[in-house]
């Protein structure tokens, strides 16, 4: 049996993305890619080959998920375990690495294996710098959601592993799903993004309607969702939020700190509206308008309407 590259995420969507990374790595290094699932096989996961780990239940807390993976790895000896860098995923990866005594690379891309060394790129310093890092195998690696496209390579191979009884010390008292946002920013072709330059929550519909006029969606900088709570947490774009790559990104009243740029720098065309001509966002934009958003946004909307 060839050595395996495992991919695990509690999210089915991220799991499919990880399979792309796992297949790429496996092909380059003569290994096989396996989707590891806890509890049961999930329909939304597309994979050629899977390992279903029994004993942890369907949706375990990260502590229990980590122990299930650790036991599976001790028995099956994969060469690499890829884990989706969601909030829970980061905990799972860290714990598995600590328990197995393996090194852990985080937020990796461009993975390659050279002999017994694993190499990858990751961004540091809020996206300003790309570092090339390496460690020995076996290793745990976390991968940022939405970085890789979803894999579509499917197959029927299913293996099972019984991890035995698993318990943790952390007890779940309640779990409340957040209200699902109306739109998935990652799929939007155009995004209008609101920053602190917007004075009141009541002004957001103005930006929302510009977004609609462009056939897109409304996003924001972190302070608007986290500090002010004007928009749901999952609307914020950047290092700690979603990563987006729309055709058109319009940053309105956003200063353009590196942590924000990290989430939108791969957009095709970037437009910025800001009163401060020295705002860093203009360095990261194709087209800039140095003016008050309260004058420019309605003007852009009107120009768009008259175009139809």
């Amino acid at each position: 049996m060839s050595e395996q590259v495992w991919a695990y995420s509690g999210s089915g969507e991220v799991q499919c993305e990880l399979m792309s990374a796992a297949l790429e790595l496996a092909e380059k290094s003569g290994r096989s890619a396996v989707a590891v699932e806890l509890g049961r096989q999930r329909e939304e996961v597309v994979a050629q080959s899977r390992l279903v780990v029994k004993g942890a239940g369907d949706d375990p807390l990260p502590e229990v998920a980590a122990e299930a993976l650790t036991r599976a790895a001790r028995s099956r000896h994969p060469s690499t375990i890829l884990v989706g860098a969601t909030r829970n995923g980061r905990e799972v990866a860290s714990r598995v690495a600590a328990r197995l005594g393996w090194p852990c690379l985080s937020e990796a891309s461009k993975l390659s294996i050279d002999g017994a060394q694993l190499q990858a790129n990751r961004t540091v310093f809020a996206g300003k710098v790309v570092a090339t890092v390496s460690c020995g195998l076996p290793a745990v690696v976390t991968i940022k959601p939405a970085f890789y496209p979803k894999s579509t390579a499917s197959g029927k191979e299913v293996d099972e592993f019984d991890a035995g009884e698993l318990t943790g010390v952390v007890k779940l008292l309640s779990r409340r799903k957040k209200e699902a946002g109306a739109v998935d920013l990652r799929k939007a072709k155009a995004i209008v993004s609101a920053g602190r330059g917007v004075k009141r929550k009541e002004d957001l519909p103005m930006l929302q309607s510009l977004a609609e006029e462009l056939g897109g969606a409304l996003g924001c900088s972190r302070p608007l969702s986290s500090d002010l709570g004007w928009l749901p947490e999952e609307c914020h774009i950047g290092l700690t939020g979603v990563t987006v790559k729309p055709d058109l990104y319009v940053a309105v009243g956003i200063s353009g700190q590196l942590q924000h740029i990290a989430g939108m720098k791969d957009s095709k065309v970037v437009v910025a509206v800001n009163t401060d001509k020295d705002a860093p966002i203009f360095q990261a934009s194709d087209y800039g308008i140095v003016a008050d958003l309260y004058q420019v946004v309605p003007a852009i909307k009107k120009a768009l309407e008259s175009r139809r």
């Binding site: 690379l105 570092a131 195998l137 087209y287």
Partner: peptide
């Protein structure tokens, strides 16, 4: 068992048009 090593670092450059 195996330390994580940094092999190199490079500052990202942006190639935006920057038209005002």
């Amino acid at each position: 068992s195996s330390p994580v090593a940094v092999l190199g670092m490079s500052v990202q450059t942006s190639s935006r048009k920057r038209v005002i």
